[in-house]
Structures are given as structure tokens and as C-alpha cells.
Design a protein around this nucleic acid. Sequence first.
DNA 1: GACAACATACCGACTGGTCGGTATTGTTCC
DNA 2: GGAACAATACCGACCAGTCGGTATGTTGTC
Lengths: 214, 214
Amino acid sequence: MPPRTSEPSPKRGARQELLEAALGLIREQGYASTSVDELCAQAGVTKGAFFYHFPSKETLAIAAANHWSKITTAFFEAAPYHKYSDPLERVLGYLDFRKAILTGEIAEFTCLVGTMVQETYGTHPDIRAACEASISGHAAAIAADIAEAMARYRIRASWTAESLALHSQAVLQGAFVMAKAMGNAAIAAESVDHLRRYIELLFQTAKLNAKEPS
Amino acid sequence: MPPRTSEPSPKRGARQELLEAALGLIREQGYASTSVDELCAQAGVTKGAFFYHFPSKETLAIAAANHWSKITTAFFEAAPYHKYSDPLERVLGYLDFRKAILTGEIAEFTCLVGTMVQETYGTHPDIRAACEASISGHAAAIAADIAEAMARYRIRASWTAESLALHSQAVLQGAFVMAKAMGNAAIAAESVDHLRRYIELLFQTAKLNAKEPS
DNA sequence: GACAACATACCGACTGGTCGGTATTGTTCC
DNA sequence: GGAACAATACCGACCAGTCGGTATGTTGTC
């Protein structure tokens, strides 16, 4: 979902180039069926460079997951929905934003760590942990806004802000799976619509009750 | 989610044994990193038997997806929620059932085709199509109950029964991804809770209005 | 000339797939 | 009933190619 993958531009260094190549290729093909040679070819470097920077393919995957976290964090921090002062509007705005970026090739908007963790959770514990950290970190950012919205609108519910944030990530991950299965991005957008409607419903009655912001 | 994988019991034939082995191994490791040799070992057959029954590894994957459809269709048709005469209760009962089977090892309750399609959608069109057919078939069964519930409670909404059924599958697929990432089945159950709450909210107001069932 | 940052050539294990052969189970004709 | 034949289901050694990983060589910079 960040900058559309660029060709091996000069002077970024083999490490960066490999990380960038990993984002593209692993999202297209998955971790297991993306070979080191393929990664090197895409990055425009040789195998020597690969193993100079990463002791193993698994290490690259972990580094790629961390790189993904950095990129997406910056990407979402720069997104327009942060301008809203109302935390609920920020949450809804976040979902509108996620829906809006569901364009182009499927591999361009799907999630690296969600894809990778499916194949590796049982066999590569360190990759799994890196993927979990990435998802949890992003979910925590959403949870903060949800928690603020719950406080503002005096929501007392059987669910927590963390739980709803995690659910929103589940919906997005699931939407990506469905888009891949159907070969169709529109199906993912509809799931985001449902999620948005759900959150609106959760806050609806409470919002009517609360007139004063604080 | 069907019968906990059994050991290569005698006299089921190599083909069945291989199909069964595929369900287990691919859900644990994914398609690409499950080798033909591994499949054969798990099934207790030789490579000769493999390629006698399936012209290629890809063909086995397609057959496994179809086998999965058959198994899950039978499994859900036998589930207790069909006893309800109220279609909305059946939909909610379906969700309760899906939540209830979220036990044991992660690979035992996750979805074969959801896992497989992530790695193959871009590179193996025929596998993708088989996975899509499996998901769509299951979603259609849910959509029928949702449609009936919408008619019964006179829902006129901006969403369709099909869309909500597909969304429910997205939530489940996403819940599986999250469970794998967190190494934790409970997180999946919470997403199902959210989905259930959403559907209850969608039908809540309408249900109050409609006193007469038909 | 020492070190970082690569490139090149290579290794052995493993991969999906092939192939000649065999055990078992009908089927057919006498 | 039983010999002859044939189809089905399976075996396991083998093949060419690919895999992740290594060992060693080259080059630019301080």
C-alpha cells in the first residue's frame, strides 16, 4: 500500500533494495515460493550481496516485516484522517482511508505480514513474532483512537478498544484473502463498508446521548 | 475443522490417503513448502502412487480444495443450528457454531482454501478458482439464510444478503490469520463475537418492528 | 593496506516429475 | 473350474533442475 514498488533505483544500497524486493515478491507469491535468487534478481544485486547483509533467507523475512512496520507506520501517520479532532471521526476516517487505497493490483494493497504469517506461523517462530509485532503495533494505534472515542462518548461495553482494533485488523486481513480468492478488490471494499457500519452502530446510541464533548 | 486428522488407516486407498494428508500438511505449512515427498510420507504411500493418481502437485491441490468443499459442506449441514425455524436464529447459530469449533491446534480449525489461495492466487489460476468455488459455495449457503431472515424481518438495507455472507467469511478468514499471527485461538473467537454483535445490531430494530413472523 | 561492500563460482541437499517394473483383481474363453 | 489375458493400483530408483547457503575473489574508500 505504500509507494508503488520502484525499479532498482541507483544508490540505495543492496540491503534496501533487497528489502524493497521482498515486499513486492512475497506479497505476490508468498514466502516459501520466493527464492533468494529471485529476490536478488528483482533487487538487482547478487547472491553475495544478499548473504553479506542477511545471514539467511529467514533473517531477510524478519527484516522485511520490520521494514514493513516502519513503512506502514509512516504511511498511516501521514494519512489525512488524523486531522479530525473527534476520535470517532478519526476511526471512521481510518476505515475510509483503508477503503480508498484498495486500488490497482491486489499485491499492491495487501499486507506483507498477513500473507507471510500464514505460511510461517508453525515453522518459523521468529518470522511469526515479527509479523505479530507489526500487526499489534498497528492495532495499538487504532486502539488508542477507539479508546478515546469510547471515553468521549461514554461507552461502557462488553468489548474493549483493543478487541475492536484487533477485529478491524481481522476484517482487513480477511478482506485481503477474499480479494485474492475472488480475484477482485471490490469484495474487500464491501467488507470495510460492513466494518464501518458496525462501528457506527456501536457508537450510534451513545453518540445521541452525549451532547457535551467532555 | 472436520474429523481430527487420522493416521493412515488401512484400506482407504492411496488417493484418499493423499487427500487427507494434504488437508493436514497444507494447513500447517502452506502449499509451497509442503513437498510431494512429505505428502507421500504422511499418507504412507510412495511417490509412484502419488503420480499415478495426480498428474502434478498442482492437481492434488485442486483435488484437495474440492475434497475440502465436500467435507465442510457435509460438516456444516450436520451442524445443530439448522434445527431453528427462525432464519435469523440459524445465522446466529451458525456463528455460535463457528466459534465453538475454535479449539485445539490452530491448523485444525483453520481453512485449507483460505490458506492456500494466499500463496497461489497469482501463480496458479486453477488452484485459485477451486478455492474461490469452495468459499463461494459455503457463502451461498449462509446467504440463503440471511436472505430469508431479511425477508422475514422486512429488512430493506443498502447491503445485500450475499454481501453480508461474504463479509462473514472475510471475518472468519481474517480471524484465522490473526490467530496464526498471535499464536492464539482466543483472538479469533473475539472477532466472531464482534461479527455476531454486528448482525444482531443490523436486525435489532427491524426485529422489534415485526411482530408477526410472516 | 585494511576494511566494507559487494561479485562470482560453486556445493550438496532437496525438488517435482519420470519410468520400468510388479502385485492384485477382474474378465474371458474353453 | 481354471488358464490366459488385461486393466488397475502401486512401487521405488532415478533424473534434471532448483534450493539455500558458502568460499573466495575483486573493488572502491579511508
